[in-house]
Amino acid sequence: MTGTGTKNITADINLRTILLPLVAIVVLIVYFTYVNPLFFSYANAINIGRQSAVLLIVALAGTVVILIGSIDLSVGAQVTLTGILAALTVDQYGALGATLISVGAGAVVGLINGGLVTALKVPSFLVTLGMLSVLSGVSNQISRGQSILFMNGSLTDIVNGTYLLGIPNVIWFALIAVLILTIVAFYTKLGRYLYAIGGGEIVAANAGVPVIFYKVLTFALAGAICGFAGVVMTGQIGAGTPTAGGSLLLNSIAAVVMGGTALSGGVGGPHRTFLGVLVIAILTNGMDVTEVNSFTQDIVKGIVIILAVSLTIDRSKYPFIK
């Protein structure tokens, strides 16, 4: 295939992955508004923002790992554990102290994930699947399977408060996270190396990129983001619960892929994930508003993931489908 042909295919894939979520958002809004006019209201838009804020932050963590061609299946478990840590420490250290502890704990978990992947040369899928189980067990051990309440109301007030333009702070936190990570992805050395490693790890290494260091750093960054998501989730709920992050893994992967970040790595970014989260959030909220039962919602989300992967995957990176 000629270089021009390859460029045309790449351009077609990029255009398709940008247009698909935008078209899906418009179609979903029109459909759910037709079924229930209350869906298209400012109050419900704010509600969608509140419901999807933690998901957006977690999906951003998943995005940076997927960009290097890896995957982190422990993101939901990381959020659960760090959320519990925030609930345990906020009374003694305040909202800022609890946030630093949780973000730090998330970064340590990410370092372990990245270290195991690179040192043992074990696929990230297997490492993080095992870590998911480990973290779930630790969360249940610490909490004894029960919600952990706290007396200090500062964290809840900050997360659920409204300081600017009548928009809840939790939405601003998520949007700022998108902005920061988009800047990192496109205007920093780390961002350039993320795409280089995802586009071709061997080529990146031959070009002088310290691949192992940046892979470990990427997992640590994802863990830190999950730690922040855990704090936000605990602030929203008002407690640390051992089951709070259970649904985040499936929804975050769906959002990342739906936004156009390819599971093969090197394509996409935080800005695309924002669109993907909007699709998932609007779909979920719309099914709630139109009273679709939870079992059917799971079926629909599963179909969405399959379709999104089939439409965004770069098949040129997979000579064989196993």
Rank of each mutant, 00 (worst) to 15 (best):
N36K: 15
N36W: 02
P37Q: 07
P37G: 10
P37L: 08
P37K: 07
L38V: 13
L38C: 00
L38M: 11
F39K: 13
F39S: 12
S41I: 06
Y42I: 10
Y42Q: 09
Y42F: 14
A43Q: 15
A43F: 10
N44A: 01
I46Y: 07
I48A: 04
I48Y: 03
G49H: 07
G49D: 11
Q51K: 13
S52L: 07
A53F: 00
L55F: 10
L56P: 01
I57A: 08
I57P: 09
V58N: 04
A61Y: 09
G62Y: 06
T63L: 08
T63N: 06
V64R: 02
V64C: 06
V65F: 08
I66S: 08
I68P: 10
I68Q: 12
S70V: 01
D72Y: 07
L73P: 07
L73E: 08
V75N: 08
G76S: 09
A77H: 04
Q78I: 14
Q78Y: 01
L81H: 06
L81M: 07
L81W: 01
T82L: 01
G83F: 01
A86I: 04
Q92R: 14
Y93P: 00
Y93L: 15
G94C: 10
G94V: 13
G94R: 09
A95D: 04
L96Y: 10
G97A: 13
T99S: 15
L100C: 12
L100V: 15
I101Q: 12
S102H: 11
V103K: 11
V103N: 11
G104D: 11
V108C: 04
V108L: 14
V109L: 12
L111R: 01
I112R: 06
G114E: 06
G115Q: 07
G115F: 06
L116A: 06
V117Q: 00
V117A: 03
V117K: 02
T118P: 00
A119D: 01
A119R: 12
L120M: 13
L120W: 05
V122M: 13
V122A: 09
V122L: 14
V122H: 00
P123S: 02
P123T: 01
S124L: 03
S124C: 05
S124E: 04
F125R: 00
L126M: 14
V127Y: 02
V127N: 02
T128G: 05
M131D: 00
M131Q: 00
L132N: 13
L132T: 12
S133T: 15
V134N: 01
V134K: 02
S136A: 06
S136Q: 12
G137S: 06
V138H: 05
S139K: 01
N140M: 07
N140D: 06
N140S: 05
